[in-house]
Design a protein around this nucleic acid. Structure first.
Length: 195
DNA sequence: CATGGGATTGACT
DNA sequence: GTCAATCCCATGC
């Protein structure tokens, strides 16, 4: 896989969020196609960087192309790609994948869902699910997305990106009017609520 | 130093 | 539809 260079991320976060749809995330024997993203920027209060430069947000303000991984609700690790030039706090949250390789390993990592093994569409259809399925943990915070262990790259098999649907971001309480969520239209792996 | 909220999920009514 | 699980860290006293 040809991984995306830091230049790709050193641009307006909305452009990167849209263009990451259709790219591939790879980690520890598993991979999937990105079908849902959200953009976050220091200028709006739903972004962690809105609070300024703190130990928590240090990576967000760092160079583009790094992984920003943080714990959500005390339980889930959420994967973001740091964007915009160094010094600007912005990132794209990876919210859902279409499973590609290592599906049985993903199923093992996801464990039982409703008392039975997860169906394919339950493996990566949410930001906490996909990190669990790929084995991405907090210790990957600050790592390079070009060099790994978590890598993001372009597909080389001629797959065409579907139309992208746009809507408001999910699960936040502030800046809920911004339509900064991007989904591969009609893809079954997009999390709820669907646009 | 204590407290409280959050970019979620899964189980249950 | 409701609700608990559970951790990091920002905030305030």
């Amino acid at each position: 896989m040809r991984t995306l260079a830091p230049d790709f991320y050193a641009r307006p976060v909305l452009d990167v969020a849209r263009e990451l749809i259709g790219c591939v995330v790879e980690h520890d024997g598993c991979s999937g196609v990105i079908v849902e993203t959200e953009a976050y920027h220091e200028s709006e209060p739903a972004c962690h960087a809105y609070a300024g430069l703190t130990p928590r947000t240090e990576v967000l303000f760092g160079p583009p192309g790094l992984a920003y991984v943080y714990r959500s609700y005390g339980i889930h690790a959420l994967l973001n790609a740091v964007c915009e030039p160094e010094g600007v706090g912005a990132a794209v949250l990876i919210r859902a994948l279409a499973p590609l390789d290592g599906i049985e390993l993903m199923r093992e990592r996801r464990g039982l869902v409703g008392g039975r093994p997860a169906r394919d569409v339950e493996l990566c259809s949410g930001p906490g699910k996909l990190t669990q399925a790929l084995g991405i943990r907090l210790d990957q915070n600050g790592a390079s997305l070009a060099r790994g262990p978590v890598r993001i790259g372009e597909r080389e098999d001629g797959w065409r990106e579907p139309p992208v649907a746009i809507g408001p971001r999910i699960g936040i309480t502030r800046a809920i009017d911004l339509r900064w969520r991007f989904c591969a239209a009609g893809d079954a792996n997009v999390s709820r609520p669907r646009i």
